[in-house]
């Protein structure tokens, strides 16, 4: 009979009308974030051995780090992620040999100003007994033209320091 399907459809709609709501009103309520969620990065500076493997694993050359030699050990002075180019694939976290870099559950990484976008995880001075300064570990390879076009992380950090921090 023509129209039987329509009636069946209406029946289902009627049943669904009385079923519990599945939509969550976001800012007031939020779904639980799973353990493996790819959120904002966190670096455990005590564990980090400044090997630069995370920077090499990144497909988009998002990570740039600077180090200085203090005594016999390498000291991490700068760790900046150009987060606007990050795909959140997790290859950096996976390659970290000391499990120093990991994801947190922070989802809100919005910024008001472009200069504030780079995620500065470490920015500090090396202790006084430094001997010599080394070149940056993650030097961008010349074959990537996208790198040349993108402003370097350091310059952006310098700019962000000078600019308004309202967005944070």
């Amino acid at each position: 009979m023509f129209g039987k399907g329509l009636v069946k459809g209406l029946e289902i709609t009627w049943k669904e009308f009385w079923s519990p709501k599945t939509v969550i009103q976001y800012p007031e309520a939020q779904n639980p974030i799973p353990e493996r969620f790819h959120g904002r990065f966190v670096l455990d500076t005590d564990k980090c051995i400044v090997c630069g493997m995370c920077a090499n694993a990144c497909p988009n050359k998002v990570i740039s780090l600077k180090k200085q030699k203090v005594g016999t050990k390498q000291f991490l002075t700068n760790y900046v992620m150009n987060i606007q180019y990050c795909m959140f694939c997790g290859l950096c976290v996976e390659t970290c040999p000391k499990d120093a870099l990991h994801f947190s559950k922070v989802i809100n990484m919005n910024q008001y100003f472009y200069n504030n976008i780079p995620l500065v995880l470490v920015q500090r001075e090396a202790p006084a007994e430094q001997v010599e300064q080394e070149k940056p570990a993650a030097k961008p390879t010349p074959q990537l033209k996208a790198d040349a076009l993108a402003p370097t992380a350091e310059s952006e950090v310098a700019a962000s320091k000078a600019s308004d921090k309202e967005g944070e």
């Binding site: 799973p34 353990e35 493996r36 694939c89 997790g90 994801f103």
Partner: peptide, 24 residues
């Protein structure tokens, strides 16, 4: 899928030789 891989759509779950992680 998010619980398994950490991402909702762009999973990047497969690796050469296996998968990224075991099921939680």
């Amino acid at each position: 899928l998010e619980e398994l891989t950490g991402s909702r759509m762009t999973l990047s779950y497969a690796r050469i030789g296996g998968v990224a992680a075991d099921a939680p």
